[in-house]
Simulated scan of single mutants.
Amino acid sequence: MSRHLFLVAALAAMSGCASTALQPERTCFHSMEQLEQDIGFCQAVRSGNTLHVSGVSAGGTMDSAVRSVYARLDEILEANGLSSANVVRETVFATDLDAFIENKSIRREFYGTSLPAASWVQVQRLYLPSYVVEVELTAEYAK
């Protein structure tokens, strides 16, 4: 190790920040803590000015599942001081993309005129085989 790198490492260790210098400050928000711990995720993580919302899934008919997912996402955003207007990125995973597209008006109700960048992907299955749609979001807090 060069003397310069050694000096930087020594100073970081002495200041007590060696182990956290490269880790972003982040906060985990739980909505169903036991389930999240069992599976191994946080429902939402704030890192800096950004809230990353884990996929919210539902089963049943695509119509009821889409309504359920966007209602749940609204609750999560609201609990974190945000709304759908703060969403900048959305990823949809559907087991039947045509059925999701048929219900896009429900999604449109959620976003109104504040549409995010989005990707819609058809998948073979989701975490539980009974799930038909999962949506994850990225939202930003106003600066």
Rank of each mutant, 00 (worst) to 15 (best):
R3Q: 06
R3V: 04
H4S: 03
L5Y: 00
L5P: 00
V8C: 02
V8D: 00
V8Y: 02
A9H: 00
A13W: 00
A13D: 02
A13H: 01
M14L: 07
S15N: 05
C17M: 06
A18M: 04
A18G: 09
S19F: 08
S19Y: 08
T20F: 03
T20G: 03
A21Q: 02
L22T: 03
E25L: 07
E25G: 02
E25R: 08
T27A: 02
T27R: 03
H30C: 08
M32G: 04
E33V: 08
Q34V: 11
L35Y: 13
L35I: 14
E36R: 03
Q37S: 07
I39W: 13
F41N: 04
F41I: 05
Q43Y: 05
Q43S: 14
Q43E: 13
A44K: 04
T50S: 14
L51Y: 11
L51N: 10
H52Y: 15
V53I: 15
V56R: 05
V56G: 02
S57M: 13
A58L: 06
G60F: 06
G60K: 05
T61G: 06
T61P: 01
T61Q: 02
A65G: 01
V66Q: 03
R67G: 03
S68D: 08
S68Y: 05
V69L: 09
Y70I: 06
Y70H: 11
E75F: 09
E75T: 12
I76A: 11
N80P: 10
G81Y: 12
G81I: 10
G81L: 08
L82H: 05
S83H: 09
S84K: 12
A85R: 15
N86M: 09
V87K: 08
V88G: 14
E90W: 09
E90L: 15
A94G: 11
T95N: 14
T95K: 14
D96S: 14
A99L: 13
N103Y: 12
N103L: 11
N103D: 15
K104G: 14
S105N: 14
S105I: 15
I106T: 14
E109K: 15
Y111D: 06
Y111L: 10
S114F: 12
S114G: 06
S114T: 13
A117H: 13
A117F: 12
A118I: 09
S119G: 08
Q122D: 07
Q122H: 06
V123P: 10
Q124A: 13
Q124Y: 06
L126F: 04
L126P: 02
Y127N: 03
S130E: 15
Y131I: 02
V135I: 12
V135L: 05
V135R: 01
E136D: 10
E136G: 08
A139R: 07
Y141M: 08
A142C: 06
